[in-house]
């Protein structure tokens, strides 16, 4: 958490994370270049750059896309999510080098503006085989640019977590465009079953992880709670671990019920910072701590401790024996609710 905006709030883990990103990117480029220059030495340097950075960007995009569902399935991977933005920006840089060189190589120094040329040099929009695949790559690059340029807490706070999240969910649209760009472009000419196989395998991995995660989350959302005089029966107190929470869906909203210091408190499950699942967080120093970036909230009122100003909705709980009940009507964000003692 930070009060002011800095370009990067560096810490030891971020530095290690970024070193691994840079070294992996270098490894890819060096390997690609050495193999090409040794075994296919008639290449041109421009083609080498375009292909090396284009394929690197695609592989990085696959890694980025598996991080989300992997963390939903196993919270031990959460530290990878924590710095995913740096991976995203690095991937955009690789894609930009690919796109920039391609636009210059194929469209610049001609009789029309290069950007106009991207859209008009091949007008076979009605044909699948002859489709102007470069348009797809260009649109994907624009999306990645918007995402990379807003990958900062400044934009997150100013656009609101909801808008920011929607904007960044466009990565799936960009992925679709990129896959179509490659299959309708490079793969029409470079027809190796190995490269085509790599992307098909990548798609299968990404799709399976997302589907598995969706099924898991659907279970939470579809669970039916017994109603009793306006209160919903949610669980037995023993089902919640100490200093941890259990997530339930009430009135189509996910709610996290925390157990700590012989008390229970319920707050809205979505962190105000980046939409992280607070119910997968932990009570640290008396505060609910988001598992994604460590944003904190007081369990009794859903407010971030001063001087921070984030607030989430709170809920009223009651205990009957060891059974926990929740009032599905949310209080306004930051409303004080007396914790339920047991």
């Amino acid at each position: 958490m930070g009060l002011d905006y800095q370009l990067v709030l560096w810490n030891k883990h971020k530095k290690t994370y970024d070193k691994i990103i840079v070294l992996s990117m270098l490894l890819y480029i060096i390997l690609f270049a050495v193999v090409t220059l040794v075994f296919n030495s008639e290449t041109s340097i421009e083609t080498l750059i375009i292909r090396a950075f284009g394929t690197l960007a695609i592989i990085m995009l696959h890694i980025i896309l598996v991080i989300g569902p992997l963390c939903r399935l196993n919270s031990r991977f959460l530290p990878i999510l924590y710095n995913r933005r740096h991976l995203g920006v690095s991937m955009f840089i690789a894609a930009l080098i690919h796109g920039g060189f391609s636009i210059f190589q194929f469209h610049a120094l001609g009789d029309v503006n290069p950007i106009y040329s991207i859209f008009t040099s091949n007008m076979d929009y009605g044909s699948l085989i002859n489709f102007p695949f470069q348009v797809l790559g260009f649109l994907a690059l624009l999306i990645l640019f918007v995402m990379a340029s807003t990958s900062h807490d400044f934009f997150l706070a100013n656009l609101s977590a909801k808008v920011w999240k929607r904007l960044h969910m466009m990565v799936y649209f960009a992925y679709t465009l990129i896959i179509a760009h490659v299959f309708l472009g490079a793969f029409q000419q470079e027809t190796s079953p190995f490269t085509i196989g790599v992307l098909i395998l990548g798609f299968i991995v990404i799709a399976s992880l997302h589907i598995t995660t969706a099924f898991k989350e659907r279970k939470i959302d579809r669970a039916k709670n017994e109603e009793k005089e306006g209160w919903l029966k949610v669980c037995n107190i023993s089902e919640i671990d100490e200093d941890r929470a259990k997530i339930f869906t009430v009135d189509n909203e996910r709610v996290a019920i925390f157990k700590y210091d012989r008390k229970l408190s319920a707050i809205h499950n979505v962190c105000k910072h980046q939409g992280g699942p607070l119910g997968e967080g932990k009570i640290i120093d008396g505060c609910i701590t988001c598992p994604w970036h460590g944003y904190q909230y007081l369990p009794s009122n859903g407010q971030s401790p001063p001087p921070f100003t984030e607030k989430v909705s709170t809920y009223e709980l009651k205990l009957e024996g060891t059974t926990v009940y929740i009032n599905p009507k949310a209080f306004d964000e930051g409303t004080e609710v007396t914790p339920c003692k047991y």
């Binding site: 890819y28 390997l31 470079e190 190796s192 490269t195 790599v198």
Partner: peptide, 13 residues
């Protein structure tokens, strides 16, 4: 994955 992909993509040209 990165190293294997670099080999696959570069050798397949």
């Amino acid at each position: 994955v990165i190293a294997a992909s670099a080999l696959v993509f570069s050798f397949s040209q």
